[in-house]
């Protein structure tokens, strides 16, 4: 096939899609996690954008049952939907993805994960989020002092955050990372982080001996905050940052204490961008980028209440 015929073929496909578009495209959104708050926002963002485009959006919740996600993917493939959006680890629903691929129905991940049978995954950039807070810490302490890091390398999405913070801090000659802690997360991460931070505070009793705490997510930041307050050292100006901006973290940031910054993901934006990505696929575009990032927002006392 020459380049010319290939373009002509692509045009024909796009035209065909255009006429089908008049008949209203149908997109199925399948997730086991609709009851979780974040997922609601993804789905709302997607549905709003999809309905604006005139699609029929069918949201299917399997109430925590990942196996049923496979069954429902098979069902909507049989039904003949135009595209499928999933919000579940693609590795666990590979059997369903294979069915969709076999039938030529595109699948887009909405903060799902990468997979050969997923045309693209729309998510937040963990590298960028970590860069935001790591740079915030470095700037706040004027590029010098002792920094404590809370990371969790066994979980890949959190591991990438730690890598970036390592790089940022290493780039400041006067910043010393005095400990890189992997907290026990079996009880949520706050309690063990607090205990580890208490031990560090005890080992570094001099005021100013710890300048900042950088946490790869909010729970260790909250634990560190508790430890600092319990030790009566909240007046030393120790800067704490987290990532994810969960409600508890927002409250702490808004209170104006040591916990100064976190990063909020734009869940509705991820939903809307997923819809745009589906539209591109339906228009016959071949996606080069298999991972599509939606910008995140630094949350500080200035905007934490929003």
């Amino acid at each position: 096939m020459t380049m010319g015929t290939r373009i002509a073929a692509a045009g024909a496909v796009a035209l065909g899609m255009g006429t089908a578009g008049a008949l209203a495209q149908e997109v199925a959104v399948i997730t086991p996690y609709l009851a979780q708050p974040g997922t609601q926002f993804y789905v709302d963002g997607f549905t709003a954008e999809g309905e604006e485009r005139g699609w029929t959006v069918n949201v299917i919740d399997t109430a925590g049952d990942v196996g049923a996600v496979i069954s429902r993917i098979e069902d909507v493939v049989t039904q003949g939907v135009d595209a499928i959006v999933i919000n579940v680890d693609p590795a666990q629903v590979g059997a369903g993805l294979a069915t969709a691929a076999d039938a030529g129905i595109p699948v887009v991940g909405m903060d799902a994960g990468s997979h050969p049978d997923v045309a693209a995954n729309v998510t937040s950039n963990g590298y960028a989020m970590a860069a935001e807070t790591a740079v915030y810490v470095a700037n706040r302490i004027d590029g010098e002092g002792a920094v404590v890091m809370f990371t969790f390398d066994p979980f890949p999405p959190v591991q990438v955050r730690g890598v970036i913070a390592d790089a940022v801090f290493a780039n400041f000659p006067d910043i010393e990372v005095i400990d890189r802690i992997t907290p026990d997360v079996s009880d949520g991460g706050i309690a063990d982080s607090r205990a580890q931070m208490e031990a560090l505070l005890a080992a570094n009793p001099e005021p100013g001996s710890i300048s900042a705490v950088w946490a790869a997510w909010d729970q260790p930041a909250l634990g560190a905050l508790q430890a600092i307050e319990a030790a009566g050292r909240e007046g030393e100006g120790i800067v704490i940052t987290g990532i994810d901006a969960n409600p508890q973290a927002r409250d702490a940031i808004a209170a104006g204490g040591n916990f100064e910054a976190s990063v909020a993901q734009d869940f509705e934006g991820i939903g809307a961008t997923t819809a745009e990505t589906v539209a591109r696929l339906l228009a016959g575009e071949e996606l080069r980028q298999r991972v599509i990032y939606v910008p995140t927002e630094l949350v500080t006392a200035a905007n934490a209440a929003e």
Binding site: A63, G64, D65, V66, G67, A68, I70, D89, A91, Q92, V93, G94, A95
Partner: peptide, 16 residues
């Protein structure tokens, strides 16, 4: 069978 279908195992997946 369930674990094979989802190529994974978690402690609640068969409860339903």
């Amino acid at each position: 069978m369930y674990a094979s279908r989802v190529a994974s195992a978690n402690p609640t997946q068969g409860d339903g």
